[in-house]
Amino acid sequence: MTDYNFAYLDEQTKRMIRRAILKALAVPGYQVPFASREMPMPYGWGTGGVQVSAAVLTPEDRMKVIDQGADDTTNAVSIRQFFEKTAGVATTTQTAEASVIQTRHRIPETPLTEGQILVYQVPIPEPLRFLEPRETETRKMHALEEYGLMHVRLYEDIARHGHIATSYAYPVRIEGRYVMDPSPIPKFDNPKMEMAAIQLFGAGREQRIYALPPHTKVVSLDFDDHPFEASKPDVPCALCGAVDAYLDEVITDDAGGRMFVCSDTDHCERRRAAGHRGPVAEEDAA
C-alpha cells in the first residue's frame, strides 16, 4: 500500500470531478468547468486526463496508458507508473484487457467495448478559439449554436491548401448539437468515436471536462463539395503489414530513409505475434 489516498486525489476532489463527468455525460459535447487541481506533473503532460482517470478508477480496474498510440513513451510510462504507485491498480499494454485507457492523441485500433472507459488528454478544449479568442463569446456561441465560424476555419484550409488540410483535432458535431474538439487525435480516428465505450475528455490547464456516452453520434464537419475523409498514409505498416491502421513515419537514417509503422504498438505487436509481416520485417527475415 502507499501513503497516498487512492489514486492521489482526495475524496472530495474526486467527488467534484465525478459530478462534472456525470454532467458532461448528460450533455454530450458540452464543456463542463471543473476546479482542476495542481498535479505532480507540468501542464501539458496530461494533468486533465490524469485527474479524470483518478476520479473514475476503482481498485479492481486494469489500466492502460498510451501516448500517440505507444505504451512505451516517456509520458505513457510516467503516468502508468504514477497510478501503479498511487492507486496500486493493475496495468496492461493490451487494449482488450484494459478497463480504463488514458490516451494522448490516439484511439486504439482494437475496437473498444462496453464497460471500457477511454480518457483523453486535452490541451485546448475550445474548438472556436482559433477564430474567436473571447471565452465569453465562444460560450454564447455554443449556447446559441452559432457554429458558422467552424466552417470559416475549414474554408480557410481549402482556400489555402486546396483541400481540408486539418489533419488532427478535426472538429466534430455531437448529436447535432455541440461542436467539440476531439483533442489532437488524427482525423483518421474521428469515425472511431462512435463507439461502445465511454469517452471522457479532461483539460487540466483549461479546467474543462467533456464526454461522450456510448454510441453517441459524432459527425466530422465538412462541405458538400469537400467531404470529410479519414485519411492516412497509403502504405502498409512496415512491420506488420496492416493496411487499415494509422501509421507513424519513422526516419531510419541520415540519408532520408524512412518507414511507416503502426502508431498503435499493441496492435502492431499482436499482429506480428499472429504471424503478419510487413515489407521491412520480411526483408529482415530474408
Partner: peptide
C-alpha cells in the same frame, strides 16, 4: 476577422446561415 482571408470574411455570414458548399460560397 483580420486573421481570415477576404473570401472567408465575406463567406462567414453565409456559412453562419447554413451554406455548406465551398464552391458556392467562394
Amino acid at each position: 476577422r483580420m486573421a481570415v482571408s477576404a473570401g472567408g470574411n465575406v463567406g462567414e455570414r453565409l456559412m453562419a446561415t447554413g451554406a455548406r458548399h465551398y464552391g458556392d460560397i467562394r
